[in-house]
C-alpha cells in the first residue's frame, strides 16, 4: 500500500512539474536580422513627434539589458534613424533593416499614451532583432496598451542578442 502511495505521489509530482514547466516555457521569436552593431549596441538618431514615448521604449529595453540602446553621438556610428510620415492605412510604424524606424502620424495621433509607447517599444524590438510574438507581448503585431516586457520578449531579446 505504502509503495503504491509513493508511486502515485511521484507521478503526481512529475505531472505538476511538467505542467509548471509548460506554463513557464517562453516562446522565442527572432528575425534573421537585427540592427545591433558589431559592438552589440543600437545607436539611434533622428527626430519624431513621439520622441518621449520612444525614449520610454528605450528605457524599457535598457532596464533589461543596460546600455545597449544609445543616442548616437560624435564617436559612434548610427545604426538606426527614426522619423515620422503620414499615410491612411493600418500601419502604426515600421522598421526596415536598411536602418530606419518610421511612425505613421495618421494612426499614432489617435492613440492613447500607452498605445504610442507600445508602438515605439515594439519597433525598437524589431530593431533589436525580435519577430512578432503572442498576445500580451510587446512584440504582438496588433496594437495593445502593453508597455512592459513579457517573458517571451525577454527570452527573444536574449536569443537575438546572444546569436
Amino acid at each position: 500500500m505504502k509503495n503504491h502511495m509513493k508511486v502515485l505521489c511521484t507521478l503526481l509530482g512529475g505531472a505538476l512539474l511538467a505542467c509548471s514547466m509548460r506554463v513557464h516555457a517562453s516562446n522565442v521569436a527572432i528575425m534573421s536580422w537585427s540592427l545591433l552593431d558589431s559592438g552589440k549596441h543600437l545607436d539611434w538618431d533622428g527626430t519624431s513627434e513621439y520622441l518621449s514615448y520612444f525614449q520610454s521604449g528605450v528605457d524599457t529595453w535598457n532596464d533589461y539589458k543596460p546600455g545597449v540602446i544609445r543616442q548616437d553621438s560624435w564617436n559612434t556610428i548610427e545604426d538606426v534613424a527614426i522619423s515620422d510620415y503620414y499615410e491612411q492605412n493600418s500601419v502604426s510604424g515600421y522598421t526596415d533593416k536598411a536602418g530606419m524606424i518610421c511612425f505613421n502620424k495618421y494612426n499614432m495621433s489617435r492613440y492613447s499614451s500607452a498605445e504610442k509607447q507600445h508602438t515605439c517599444t515594439h519597433e525598437l524590438g524589431h530593431a533589436l532583432g525580435l519577430a512578432h510574438n503572442q498576445f500580451g507581448d510587446i512584440m504582438y503585431a496588433e496594437l495593445t496598451y502593453h508597455t512592459v516586457l513579457s517573458e517571451n520578449d525577454k527570452a527573444s531579446y536574449d536569443a537575438s542578442y546572444n546569436r
Binding site: 493600418s90 502604426s92 515600421y94 508602438t119 512578432h132 496588433e142
Partner: peptide, 12 residues
C-alpha cells in the same frame, strides 16, 4: 527580398 516589419492598428 527584404521584408519590412511593423505594428498595426488591426489584426492583419
Amino acid at each position: 527580398i527584404s521584408y519590412i516589419e511593423g505594428s498595426y492598428s488591426i489584426n492583419v
